[in-house]
């Protein structure tokens, strides 16, 4: 397995500070993962479906999607619902990475089929530490589904 050695991470996050902290945490590892950053849910779906400005991107799904919940245009829960309801996307691991501590967001995410749910720690160092451990698991330890999945 791991036919394609480097699989990208899609980070859907509108908060610039959180993007920078996340990239800093992701950069700590020897695996130079290719991180694609999108600033809202509509762009996340464009990326995944190769629409709009991503029409020409290379085929294949990211190894994991890190998904903020509160985003402009299309929010994270709607993106999650779209992904898990689409036969060609639904096996992509999606990790919600959010400031929300509301139980309804947690429950709704799991009901929609999220793979994991991480609450962003408020403290800077804790945040970097958590994202770093998240990255180690999802980019190194987890075996993602094949980049192209047939409906099954």
């Amino acid at each position: 397995m791991r036919m394609d050695s480097i699989r990208s991470i899609l980070l859907a996050e509108d908060n610039q500070m959180d993007v920078e902290l996340t990239l800093e945490a992701l950069g700590q590892h020897i695996f130079a993962n290719d991180v694609v950053v999108v600033g809202d849910g509509a762009e996340a779906l464009d990326y995944l479906r190769r629409n709009g400005k991503y029409a020409d991107r290379q085929e294949g799904n990211p190894a994991v999607v890190l998904l903020d919940l509160k985003m402009p245009k299309v929010d994270g829960l709607k993106v999650l619902k779209e992904i898990k309801g689409d036969v060609s996307l639904r096996t992509i691991p999606v990790v919600v990475l959010t400031s929300s501590r509301e139980e309804k967001d947690l429950v709704k995410s799991y009901q929609l089929g999220v793979n994991a749910y991480v609450v962003k720690p408020v403290d800077f160092h804790d945040f970097v530490e958590a994202v770093s451990k998240l990255d180690v698991f999802w980019a190194i330890v987890n075996e993602p589904p094949p980049a192209r999945v047939n409906a099954g």
Binding site: V107, Y110, A130, K133, L134, F137, V141
Partner: peptide, 18 residues
Amino acid sequence: TAVSRLGVFWAIINEPPP
């Protein structure tokens, strides 16, 4: 190492359902 990383993510970092 792999199981240890797995344990850290799922037992500490991930927020499980209620």
